[in-house]
């Protein structure tokens, strides 16, 4: 197990499985519960989907960079796109009754519930979303 993993993929939703498998292998042996691993997998798929569809506007030549970092007491995931910027404040509330039947727009809401920290920041190449998941006391021995 390395303290850092990095994967760069084109903006193609078919690459989600590759990203999922890469992160699953990288986390192998870490003291996460099955439920926490699912939280991480779901959240990673959300932010990579967001980077592909919104950040990079589905332009396949634009890349998505996934960095996995072992930090004190947990992991941090950084997903960076090459898009023109993303303002989470402009995302409509998916729980508003008017939006309940919308087929999209729930990703960040879910990520905020499943991860311990979520940070969205502009970087020189686009937008970076950072996620932190901590080991819980019961599974760190």
């Amino acid at each position: 197990m390395s303290d850092e993993g990095k994967l760069i993929v084109p903006s193609d939703l078919a690459k989600l499985e590759e990203v999922d498998g890469f992160a699953e292998n990288w986390m192998n042996g870490m003291p996460f519960t099955k439920d926490q691993r699912d939280d991480i997998a779901i959240s990673l798929s959300e932010v990579v989907t967001n980077a592909i569809e919104h950040g990079n506007a589905g332009i396949v030549d634009k890349m998505v960079t996934v960095v996995l970092l072992r930090i004190e007491g947990g992991i941090r995931i950084e997903v960076t796109d090459q898009g023109g910027g993303f303002n989470p404040a402009l995302v409509a509330d998916p729980t508003d009754p008017e939006n309940l039947l919308s087929e999209s727009g729930r990703g960040l809401l879910i990520v905020h519930h499943l991860m311990d920290e979520v940070d969205v920041e502009p970087v020189s190449t686009g937008t970076r979303i950072s996620l932190v998941k901590r080991f819980t006391a019961s599974n760190t021995g």
């Binding site: 779901i42 989907t49 039947l101 999209s104 990703g107 879910i110």
Partner: peptide, 17 residues
């Protein structure tokens, strides 16, 4: 189902509609 993300929920909503 092992797990489902918001796109999966979107698939279900699309199906329902």
């Amino acid at each position: 189902v092992d797990w489902m993300n918001s796109s999966g929920l979107g698939i279900l909503i699309g199906g329902l509609t």
